[in-house]
Design a binder for these strands. Structure first.
Lengths: 182, 182
DNA sequence: ACTACTTATTCAACGGATTGCGCAGCAATA
DNA sequence: TATTGCTGCGCAATCCGTTGAATAAGTAGT
């Protein structure tokens, strides 16, 4: 229910087009909430219908025209109202973990292979988050404290995941050795 | 796309009714995938239409009748096929984190209040997970290794979250002091 | 010259998920 | 006695999200 609110948060700082927002969802906010461009354009349409945002048409040459959206008073009110009431706990839907839970059916080797792939992804994310956090830290992080804290969340999350992956590896290896030695 | 597979994983070990499954989704598997009873009954219906599961009707007295589902050959094949192909990365949708990212609008006190509420929840979960993991460990965890590893994932996740919460608290307190001393 | 990518928006179809409701009887508690 | 809670199943409306595609013009690379 709160793609709308994520959008309103982004529009808080600056006027932006749907395309701009889509890029931010692929980066910064994507850490915390993700959405495709189709969803974003749709939601912007609804927000506009409800007068939470308004836009102006910007003709461009060389590039297609765009619509620059900005948040309205109503939008800001709605956002503040939403911020005040407690957030619903995130619903967890992790397909890879379902595989682990049902792991007795797979063979260890295929689990380990996928684990490594996922670990590569996580490690990559970890590095980009760390680089961004470091940059913020050098600029004095108080200015963008909340961006910094969001990044920290991402960093700790990846680290915990990678740590877990190590546990899985050692557990599966130990098991492999036991079963082959019998 | 894989509520169905989570259900098949559960039906792997034992015959179960929709109600039983709903309870497991609230506990064990819920750690990793959650679903309401409506979704589960609906999905069981579809799985039955596709011959992935079959059921027998159990009349009960004192309690309403129930349908005990079990997995079929086709169901097991489908599950194995699914296990073989790589899982899509989970999409992140954390409303509370959206609030943090847009935290500049809220006052620190309301953020801290909600942070504490969430932390209570996480701490509670941590304890139940730890208790379950300990129990499994004592029974020799190799039998239920994958359940154990799933629990470990939950434990590390809660710990990382709580650690992050501490960071947020100290950061916001420091900031509070700075702003009030000026 | 051809391919691929970037900027920019939108539509249509489908499937997944949520919300809300309804039925039904038993057990326990206030 | 009234209310709440547990066991058990299901339907319908709506909303949210995904997939796939179309359009259009510029730029960068092989």
């Amino acid at each position: 229910m709160s793609l709308r609110h994520a959008i309103l948060v982004l529009l808080q700082d600056q006027e932006a087009s749907g395309y701009d927002l889509a890029r931010e969802f692929a980066n910064s906010i994507g850490l915390v909430w993700n959405a495709t461009h189709q969803q974003i354009y749709l939601e912007l349409g609804k927000l506009n219908d409800q007068n939470m945002v308004k836009f102006r048409h910007i003709p461009q040459d060389g590039k297609p025209d765009k619509k620059l959206y900005r948040i309205t008073e109503e939008g800001r009110d709605e956002l503040i109202r939403w911020l005040r009431k407690p957030a619903a706990p995130p619903r967890i839907r992790d397909a890879f973990m379902v595989k682990i839970a049902g792991g007795a059916l797979s063979d260890s080797s295929s689990i380990l292979r996928e684990l490594d792939d996922q670990a590569d992804l996580r490690r990559e994310r970890l590095h980009t988050f760390e680089a961004l956090a470091k940059k913020l830290d050098e600029q004095g992080r108080d200015k963008d404290l909340f961006t910094y804290l969001t990044l920290r969340r991402g960093i700790l999350d990846q680290q915990a995941w990678l740590h877990w992956a190590d546990e899985v590896k050692t557990a599966l290896n130990k098991r492999e050795i036991l079963s082959t030695s019998v």
